[in-house]
Computed example of a mutant assay.
Amino acid sequence: MNNKSNIPHIKIPILFAVTVILLLIAPANAELDVVLSKLSPQPVEPGQDLMLSLTLANGNAQANNVILAINPDPSIILKNENDRVINEGTIISYGTVAENYLLHIDQRAFSGVYEIEFMVSWMSDNQLHEINKTFKVMVQGVPQLAISNITIDSGSISPKDMFNITFLLSNAGSGIAREVEISAETSGLPFVPAGADTKIIKILNPDESIELDFRLLVKDKTVISSYSIPINMDYKDESGKNQSSRSFVGVNILGNAELSIGNIKTEPQNPVKGDPVTMTLRIENSGNGDARSAKVNLNIPFEGTKTAFLGKIEPDDDAPGVFTFNAAESGDIPYTATIEFEDDLGKHTVKEVLSLNVLDTNKSGIIIPVIAVILAAGIFVFYFSRRKNKKQ
């Protein structure tokens, strides 16, 4: 019984002794490891700085000639080039060394995962040892939408005109824009959408562009002026946050004058050959813009004043053109009235072919005696009828 009870007490010292012997005969080995202690901020935006801290941790033997080198992705810039290769010298067994790196993310970097590689070399037991350690950096870009290459399909736009606005929508940022809504805001403006006033784009990647267009109608009676049409851009960034921006498209509404002859009045009303005649042409503007430098020329085979300067005629207004001449010939005299004016669209000429009836002198001389005979006959019949009634 006593022999059996002594066996466990004998085994414990033996095991301990064996362990000590193995530790003494096992070769000491320096094993370095690179431990990441800080990486901030994460995720990081393009154009921002990034702080990285690490620790070199040694094993159970001294490490000599320790060299630490960093090799970041090209989009990650090391702000201090002296930190690219660091000579750490000697690290004692179970010793540690801390290093801090200040990095910068390239402004042009897109969203994604980038790598920073560390390489460590050292001497231990007269042998060269090396390890590589890689850490990942998450870059989260910021989308930035803008419009460019704006064109309007009509060279000139006036009230009641239809026109197209075409532009290029681009993502000039570094992040993906999602659920993009582009709208032309016409509220409070003299424009009416002739189609969909909102365009939907599911995803717009960095450096991606897409052509969009909006068709609009100019309201009637629109004030002639310049207008700015807001183009609203609503979207979500990579974190799901709602973002918005706005650009403007300038549109000039031009006045379009329309001149014509409203009526013609002559004095005398039925001119006779040889009469001095005063003719008045009333020129009306039925357009939506001012007519400037308006004038009327008469091409009629009579001597007299045949040009009238009217100046400015506003929309829904008119102006008289007065001409004086001698009716030197009788008959239906053809003539042309030429109206010249300017508006926002340029210079214009309108011609109207007309005729003036001039009575002959002889024919007009017969009319009066004939009228006198008719009147005398009427008086005679009236007088004779009365006398006859009295006698009865």
Rank of each mutant, 00 (worst) to 15 (best):
P46S: 13
D49G: 12
A63Q: 05
P43V: 06
P72W: 02
L39P: 02
V44R: 09
V66E: 09
P43K: 09
L54E: 04
V66G: 06
K38Y: 12
N71K: 11
L36H: 00
D73P: 00
D49L: 11
N65L: 12
L50W: 03
P46E: 01
N58E: 04
P43T: 09
P43A: 08
L52H: 00
Q42Y: 08
D73I: 03
P41G: 01
V66I: 12
A61Q: 10
A63E: 06
L54H: 05
G59Y: 03
P46L: 03
Q42H: 11
V66K: 04
G47Y: 10
I67T: 15
P72V: 01
L68N: 06
L54Y: 03
V44W: 12
Q62V: 13
P46Y: 05
A61M: 04
I70T: 10
V44N: 06
E45V: 13
T55M: 11
D73E: 12
L56C: 00
L54I: 11
L68T: 04
L52K: 02
Q48V: 08
V44Y: 11
L39C: 01
L54W: 00
L56T: 03
L56F: 04
G47W: 07
L50A: 03
S53E: 15
Q48Y: 14
I67N: 12
A61Y: 10
N71W: 05
L36Q: 14
N60V: 06
K38E: 15
E45Q: 15
N71D: 14
T55V: 14
G59K: 05
L36V: 05
N71T: 08
E45I: 12
